[in-house]
Write a protein that binds this DNA or RNA. Structure first.
Lengths: 109, 109
DNA sequence: TATACATATGTACATATATACATATGTATA
DNA sequence: TATACATATGTATATATGTACATATGTATA
């Protein structure tokens, strides 16, 4: 990835994304930077689950789950399907699985 | 990814990582969840750079850059090479590029 | 309509964290 | 050794953020 360079030789970086893009990307990764949201995403990896099922499964309050689901929804990582008074949540994006997988690859060296 | 399921049918999730793993993964993504670190990583994508070069390039204080480089180092995302009194930083891991790329793919829909 | 229930949301607060500032450490050169 | 310079680090502080608690919204059923 990074090319070796003699200390005296200075080359400017040839790809620097604008601040806006960097910010957007940071905001995106920030969503994955919380254990509750990670656990929710893993729970939804192969299942469509109700809010209260998530709360029970993960030992979280209904409120906390709902708040985190909102963040995940806003970032298009999960989607909702209404079922009467219940809400069924599932993953929204095909990338989510790959993103989680790559993270796991990294931390397992 | 997520299998359709009738509301009455309840299946337990078949893969739930332990809390420790979820925490480790969240901590890992947290590193990407900051605009300064993202900008540093992009700057290092094709270049080996000195701390002061990064500071100039990104309009950050030397201290701020150094603090963030420490976090990136501890998470094995960048590595250092000493050159006298200078330090040359570069990406440490082949995954970094792919992780950034996937993030970009997601936010660009 | 009244009640029960599932989910969403407003708010307060405790905790985490990025940066500025000051300073320490380490290296090269006079 | 003294000085200049690059980088690292300790600390304080302002800001961001996750969760608890209370409550609102919306739906099904009696």
């Amino acid at each position: 990835m990074s090319v070796f360079r003699a200390p005296e030789t200075k080359t400017a970086p040839n790809y620097l994304p604008g601040t806006d893009l960097a910010l957007e990307l940071a905001e995106f990764y920030k969503v994955f930077g919380d254990i509750s949201r990670i656990r929710i995403l893993f729970a939804l990896l192969d299942n469509e689950l109700y809010v209260n099922e998530l709360a029970d499964l993960l030992n979280m309050s209904q409120s906390a789950v709902s708040h985190q689901l909102r963040i995940l929804r806003q970032n298009k990582l999960v989607k909702v399907r209404k079922d009467g008074k219940n809400s069924l949540y599932s993953l929204d994006d095909e990338h989510v699985y790959r993103i989680l997988t790559h993270g796991l690859e990294h931390i397992s060296h």
